[in-house]
Amino acid sequence: MNRSKYLPLTETTFYILVALLEPGHGYYIMQKVEELSGGDVRVAAGTMYGAIENLLGLKWIKAVPGEDKRRKVYQITETGKEVLKEESKRLKKLVDVAGKHSL
């Protein structure tokens, strides 16, 4: 499967996937992303909800059974992890190239 057509990920998508390495519901993800990015990335609700729907559709995340039936809990899937790894590799390469040019 050629996943490269989805790369590069947006910053928001990247952080959401990282946040969902641990299961959490929508509002938790919003807080987690802000925390992970040191306050740089604040995902607004409409963007957040859309991202969840998109990532569910791509099967990069999945809904896992939670305590409260009305509050869905999400978690990253294996496919999602692969994409994250691929994207991290791409980003690392960029940083390496920049480093070689003493940036």
């Binding site: 519901h25 929508g26 509002y27 919003m30 609700a45 909800y49 009305r70």
Partner: peptide, 16 residues
């Protein structure tokens, strides 16, 4: 309908 609660909660959390 089944996702409405969560949808609303996402927005409520950021003040909408």
């Amino acid at each position: 309908g089944k996702d409405k609660v969560e949808y609303k909660e996402c927005f409520r959390g950021s003040g909408w």
